[in-house]
Each structure stands twice: as structure tokens, then as C-alpha cells.
Design a protein around this nucleic acid. Sequence first.
DNA 1: AAGACGGGGAC
DNA 2: GTCCCAGTCTT
Length: 221
Amino acid sequence: MKETEKISFMQSRLLKWFESNQRFFSWRQPNLSNYQIIISEVLLQRTKAETVSKLYDQFITKYPDWDSLHNAILFDIETFLRPAGLYKQKASRLYMLAKYMVENEGKLPKERSELNKLPFMGQYIANAVELQIFNKRMPLLDINMARVLERYFGPRKLSDIRYDPYLQDLALKIVDHSRSKEVSWAILDFSASICKKRNPLCCSCPLSKNCLYFKLHSIDC
DNA sequence: AAGACGGGGAC
DNA sequence: GTCCCAGTCTT
């Protein structure tokens, strides 16, 4: 089977699966502010989406925009974020981002090279900004999307996702679709409930027919 | 390339 | 008790 066929099979099956299995989060609603989108992505780092969902709405109510965050006391932000884990880092990152955004009158640079210069703007969040704010077909490539792609297509060569050209290329191809955002969300939701790190549910998987991991492990359903 | 950051939920 | 989670920066 050609790679392009394998890719379109994955896209269509995942989008179909997503229709009836998607998770609903506040940060996926339409018409969010840039602030709301970026806050969600920082809070989600290395943290389960379900955990973030418990405090995200309250956070946005308490700190509705960059100004309010910039005027807040760092310790208070830390305290609020404590249940989410990595709270000192997240509080500090949000505070620094707020400082940058206030100083730049709330404007985000459109050039990727300039975007990368923002404090704590790593590859993942920069992709998320381009996808959700600038409507570009960029992947939400985290360890979960990486795992799904690697099981289906085969493992990467380098340990660091960001520097593996094979994985980067695959991720770009899989989200090169008119419903790019939904493809990324579908993969994330799919990775959380079916293609889990531990005990993946291969016998309930709509991709197993073409999945390399499924073949290699001779899974019998 | 490896370490640090981290509480909470799943198993 | 152990593993894992919409990463990123520092050493």
C-alpha cells in the first residue's frame, strides 16, 4: 500500500471516529480569544486534558486577558495552578508571556521565525498558534500524536520528536487536510482512549487493518 | 542526550 | 506503588 493511501485511510477513519467519540473542552469552542487559546496550550503541557478542564474556566474568569494576568501576583497564579502540576513553571511562563503581550500591545507576530522568539514558545505551542489562530495546516505534534503515528507507520529514528524529520514530515502530511484542526484533535482524543501508551485497545481500533504495530504484534481479536 | 519541573488519576 | 500526562528550558 502506498503511503498516500495509508495517510488518507487514517484521516478518513479518524475523522469518522471523531464524530461520535470526541471530547468536549472549553478551549475547543469557536471564537476564542488568542489569549484563551494560548493559556490552554500552556496549561495542557505534560498534563491530562481532563485535569486542565477542571480549572480552565475558573482561570479565564479570574484572569480574563493578558492585562489581568500581567497585573496579578505570581504567587497567586502559582497557587491557583497547583492542582495542575508543573505549577511554578506554568505560572512563570504565563506571566512572562503576559508581559511580552502587554508590551507588544497584544499583537502576535505572524512570521514563524518571529513567533519562535516569544518566551517559552516551543515547537508545539507555535504549531498550535499557527493552526488555531492563523488557520495554517500545522500538527499538534506531542508525545501522543507521535505515538499514534509511530505505531501506524513505524518508529522514529531520533529520541527528540522535534528533530526527527521522518516524524515531522508524517505529522505535516496527516494534517494536510481541509479539516486540519479536527484531524489533530481526533488523533489526541484517539490516543487518550484507544491508542493508549499502556494497553492500547487494538481490537476496538478503526485503524488496525493498516497499522504496523497491529501487524507486528500479531494481535488476535 | 539527559535532567528538572509535579500533582492527580488510572491501573 | 508505578506510570503517564496537548513541553520547554537548562545543563
